[in-house]
């Protein structure tokens, strides 16, 4: 009996010692691996993927490659723990600017879609969404009944009477995300607080392909805004076929807004940082 235990223990010990030897012997040939490993040691190590990178090590790699990306450190587990944050700041030798960690909610709908039938059921967005995804022509539109108004603890949301679309007051919005959970159309998104250009269309291009005629102010995925941008602030998300904006590079030249024939893009915050259209739902119809 005893030798069975001995075999198992022996194999386990041998493997442990081999790992130890490999750890000591194998040279670190890859450039900058020490720094990456140092950063990775601060990471929580649970590979949750919430930061958008495949695992903590990949995130450490991205941080090491681009020192500036420390500013958009998205790992909530690091940010919440003061010791880890301190360690990360020591590695980089700079204090973290956490200001753009803050998020604000945006209603991604211009309210241009026509009402195609009168809904007279239970007056909630959830009820209306049960019937052919709402009474508007576009199945991705804001229904404007106001489930989000009721759920907002700050009272930051109201329904614009002109467009019939929810509007969010950024002075009051804390970016808690409760309205995102409540909205059946998934038309509300959280964006960084420093967002300058708003993208006001929730139209999902990969479904219902023949849908362009459904709204005159819907994104037709023409890439004109991406091509017009000279500051390199717009990247084209091929998978979703929508533009993505980098507020730090944006110079507010407004070329993308001029280029957009569908008027999907709006200025959200101007050069002085003053809010122009906080809610992103603008009373301006093409019809």
């Amino acid at each position: 009996m005893w030798w069975i235990v001995a075999i198992l223990t022996g194999i386990g010990l041998a493997l442990a010692i081999t790992i130890l030897i490999i750890n000591k012997v194998v040279p670190r040939k890859v450039q900058g691996i020490e720094k990456i490993e140092e950063i990775a040691s601060v990471m929580p190590g649970m590979n949750c993927g919430a930061c958008g990178h495949p695992g903590c090590f990949a995130y450490a790699q991205a941080l090491a490659a681009n020192r500036d990306s420390i500013a958009d450190c998205k790992c909530a587990l690091v940010i919440r723990e003061p010791e880890k944050l301190e360690a990360l700041q020591q590695i980089f030798g700079q204090t973290l600017d956490l200001s753009n960690m803050k998020r604000r909610a945006v209603v991604q709908c211009g309210g241009n879609s026509e009402v195609i039938f009168n809904y007279s059921g239970a007056m909630t967005c959830k009820g209306a969404a049960q019937l052919q995804r709402g009474n508007k022509q576009c199945p991705y539109a804001c229904l404007g009944i106001g489930d989000c108004v009721k759920v907002c603890p700050e009272g930051a949301i109201s329904i614009e009477p002109e467009t019939g679309v929810a509007a969010i007051n950024w002075d009051k919005c804390t970016g808690c995300g409760l309205c995102l959970l409540e909205c059946p159309q998934k038309v509300i998104k959280l964006v960084p607080e420093d967002t300058k250009i708003g993208f006001l269309c929730n139209y999902a291009p990969l479904r219902d392909i023949p849908g362009r005629e459904k709204c005159e102010a819907g994104c037709i995925h023409c890439r004109k805004c991406f091509l017009a941008c000279e500051a390199g602030a717009i990247t084209w998300n091929k998978e979703k076929a929508v533009p993505e904006f980098d507020a730090r590079k944006c110079t507010l030249c407004l070329k993308c807004i001029d280029a957009c024939k569908q008027k999907v893009l709006r200025v959200v915050v101007d050069k002085e940082g003053k809010e122009v259209v906080a809610c992103a739902a603008v009373p301006e119809r093409t019809k």
Partner: peptide
């Protein structure tokens, strides 16, 4: 673990 450790340090 050993293979990962080796690859990580020699060929990124």
């Amino acid at each position: 673990q050993m293979v990962e450790l080796y690859i990580k340090r020699t060929n990124m």
